[in-house]
């Protein structure tokens, strides 16, 4: 068999990874679909759950495997240099923490999608990213009509979100609105690198 196109010797693209976390039904798939150049794909990943303390195993095995459903999307950035950004939307429940470790390795940062009707659903994700010191932003996916929305300060209070973590609202169905969330996340990750040590956690 022949006829496969082979790669030319162009510069290697940089591969970057962004995470989208949040509770069930908060709009992760919609968000990924809004910004991705390919329609969002769902796949299964086999994850190790070694040494997991939140989910003790009945037997004495120290390592087990579980499959996790992931929403996956991609954005190609042509300029100023070629970058391929991967978006992984993944389950926000505590029992999947083990997979967050694997997924968050090397990630630029994370979007925690929140629904003001079920704010409690994103506590775990916030806690996880804070502890791992991975840059993250909280994006409130606005399901409610404007008159029923909560002011940002109220949401920040309810989440116990530190001042340095950006909190924005978005419409996960809208591409530019969702891209804005990614821009805010990137700017936030950048500010943490450029901030003097010790000022911003």
């Amino acid at each position: 068999m022949s006829g496969y196109a082979t790669s030319d010797a162009g510069p290697d693209p940089t591969a970057l990874k962004l995470l989208v976390a949040g509770g069930f039904g908060v709009g992760k798939t919609t968000f990924v679909g809004a910004v991705s150049e390919i329609s969002p794909l769902r796949t299964e990943a086999l994850m190790t759950s070694a040494g997991q303390d939140s989910d003790p195993l009945p037997d004495d095995s120290t390592k087990t495997f579980t499959t996790v459903a992931l929403d996956f999307g991609r954005i190609t950035i042509p300029r100023p240099r070629q970058m391929i950004v991967f978006l992984f939307g993944f389950p926000g429940q505590e029992r999947f923490w083990f997979s967050w470790d694997e997924l968050s390795y090397g990630a630029v940062g994370a979007v925690v999608l929140a629904d003001t009707r079920r704010l409690g659903d994103c506590f775990e994700a916030i806690d996880f990213f804070e502890r791992r010191r991975l840059p993250f932003v909280v994006a409130v996916n606005e399901f409610e009509p404007p008159e029923r929305r909560y002011p940002p300060e109220a949401v920040r209070d309810a989440l116990g979100l530190p001042e340095h973590v950006p909190l924005i609202s978005c419409d996960a169905r809208d591409r530019q609105s969702s891209l804005d969330v990614l821009r805010t996340l990137t700017a936030h990750a950048l500010s943490r690198l450029t901030a003097p040590m010790g000022v911003s956690p």
Binding site: T14, I77, M83, V85, R183, A187, L193
Partner: peptide, 13 residues
């Protein structure tokens, strides 16, 4: 991440 990569990503986005 490194600063240059994130700056390029931000411009790109």
């Amino acid at each position: 991440g490194d600063i240059q990569t994130l700056e390029d990503l931000l411009v790109g986005l």
